[in-house]
Simulated scan of single mutants.
Amino acid sequence: MKIVVLPGDGIGPETMAVAVDVLETVSARFGLGITLDHDVAGHASMEQYGATVRPELLDKVKAADALMLGPASAYEYPNQINASKHFRKGLDLYANIRPARTYAGMDHRFGEFDLVVVRENTEGFYADRNMESGGSEILVTRDVAISMRRITRVCCERIARSAFELAMTRRKHVTIVHKASVLKICDGMFVDVCREVAKDYPEVVVDDVIVDAMMALVVRHPQRYDVIVTTNMFGDILSDLTSELSGSIGLGGSLNAGADAAMGQAAHGSAPDIAGQDIANPFSQVLSAAQLLGWYGQKQNDARFLQASKAIDEAVAAGIAAGEATRDVSGRLGTKATGAALVKRLQQA
């Protein structure tokens, strides 16, 4: 398996270094033959090449099996390419899979839970993903701005099927989150297509919840939910919320997957205010790497990668329970020491 590694900005190089150590460790332990091809995007690319993403980088990633991407500080270069969006769109990574669960050794303010947000990733309210040319935000006058949203049947169908396929491996419950009460045509189509797909999965219990009510309900009782499927922006917001409910957004792994490609990407941002201080939580990047290995194992029908993915998940959980983690998740270690402890666990297991 060949993986292109782009550390990103801010805390990205620190957290990605831990993820790289973990990938190399499980590759040796399980005989995965992983090859890591290190490159740059974001600030480092801007300094070296004068662009946040150089044109040939997408082709390089397409020639590999997968991508590991660190967080990007997109706001600092508003006229440059947003690396995350660039690869999601260029590789057609339509499914953003965001697990959220509680861990032993941490306070469970909202009770124990284990859920996954399945977010459509290629259209919706995101202005940079809706048009063949240009964006879908229009400044009509200096005082009037309009943003258009695109929802298509094909994108609704494939994200719905991703959610139901995942639910079949879990507790067989899918919750459709939407705003069809107001967005009657767009979200109405989304709900209708999800329910059409549901007919192919009669074992799965299906319900739907209006998005604003969902924000309250998932805080009140996250245990009710198993797999949540929703559109792009609603999913972006909801997945950050559910990650934080687990104890820290630093525990939120994230996989961006398409039919033929995938990208592991930490759920959090680049956090430049704590960069270089050895306090950033590396687990989001590590858990994203675990998801990436799981995706590849399923795609190739190779149990070794599935075993490696599970081993990483279990080692992270054991490390948190033992306090071998950063302070934001009730641990006592810095970034590097957290990574070293995790690698030691994986080697000794």
Score class of each variant (00 low, 15 high):
residue 181 S to L: 06
residue 198 A to I: 07
residue 171 R to H: 07
residue 219 V to Y: 07
residue 137 E to T: 14
residue 158 R to K: 11
residue 209 V to L: 06
residue 150 R to N: 04
residue 177 V to S: 05
residue 228 I to K: 04
residue 132 E to M: 09
residue 180 A to L: 02
residue 203 E to S: 10
residue 226 D to L: 00
residue 200 D to A: 14
residue 228 I to R: 07
residue 204 V to W: 03
residue 193 V to L: 03
residue 138 I to Y: 15
residue 135 G to F: 00
residue 150 R to S: 09
residue 188 G to F: 02
residue 198 A to N: 13
residue 221 H to L: 07
residue 189 M to V: 13
residue 219 V to D: 15
residue 173 H to Q: 13
residue 153 R to Q: 08
residue 222 P to R: 01
residue 217 L to Y: 12
residue 151 I to N: 04
residue 196 E to I: 12
residue 196 E to F: 04
residue 157 E to N: 05
residue 154 V to W: 02
residue 187 D to L: 04
residue 168 M to V: 10
residue 208 D to C: 02
residue 227 V to K: 06
residue 145 A to S: 10
residue 174 V to I: 05
residue 209 V to A: 11
residue 202 P to V: 09
residue 193 V to Q: 08
residue 205 V to M: 03
residue 224 R to Q: 12
residue 187 D to P: 04
residue 205 V to C: 02
residue 135 G to H: 03
residue 171 R to E: 12
residue 206 V to A: 07
residue 133 S to W: 06
residue 174 V to R: 00
residue 172 K to P: 08
residue 169 T to E: 11
residue 160 A to F: 04
residue 166 L to H: 05
residue 224 R to M: 06
residue 203 E to Y: 00
residue 146 I to H: 05
residue 211 V to Q: 01
residue 221 H to W: 05
residue 218 V to F: 03
residue 160 A to G: 13
residue 197 V to S: 11
residue 175 T to K: 14
residue 171 R to V: 01
residue 225 Y to H: 01
residue 169 T to K: 08
residue 181 S to Q: 14
residue 221 H to I: 02
residue 224 R to F: 07
residue 181 S to V: 09
residue 230 T to F: 03
residue 174 V to T: 09
residue 195 R to P: 15
residue 180 A to N: 08
residue 176 I to N: 13
residue 213 A to L: 08
residue 165 E to Q: 06
residue 151 I to R: 09
residue 182 V to S: 14
residue 214 M to W: 07
residue 181 S to K: 13
residue 216 A to W: 11
residue 188 G to C: 10
residue 182 V to T: 15
residue 205 V to N: 13
residue 141 T to N: 04
residue 191 V to H: 06
residue 160 A to Q: 10
residue 201 Y to K: 11
residue 144 V to F: 04
residue 229 V to F: 07
residue 165 E to I: 00
residue 227 V to R: 04
residue 169 T to M: 01
residue 189 M to G: 12
residue 185 I to G: 07
residue 229 V to M: 12
residue 210 I to Y: 07
residue 169 T to G: 07
residue 179 K to N: 09
residue 144 V to W: 02
residue 138 I to E: 15
residue 164 F to S: 08
residue 228 I to V: 15
residue 137 E to F: 04
residue 173 H to S: 14
residue 191 V to Y: 05
residue 200 D to E: 15
residue 150 R to V: 15
residue 149 R to N: 06
residue 148 M to W: 05
residue 154 V to K: 10
residue 148 M to R: 08
residue 160 A to R: 11
residue 166 L to D: 03
residue 220 R to V: 08
residue 151 I to W: 01
residue 164 F to N: 11
residue 217 L to H: 12
residue 182 V to M: 09
residue 208 D to I: 01
residue 182 V to R: 06
residue 137 E to I: 10
residue 136 S to A: 05
residue 151 I to S: 09
residue 133 S to P: 01
residue 223 Q to D: 05
residue 230 T to M: 10
residue 172 K to S: 15
residue 157 E to G: 02
residue 200 D to W: 00
residue 140 V to N: 06
residue 224 R to N: 12
residue 138 I to N: 12
residue 187 D to V: 00
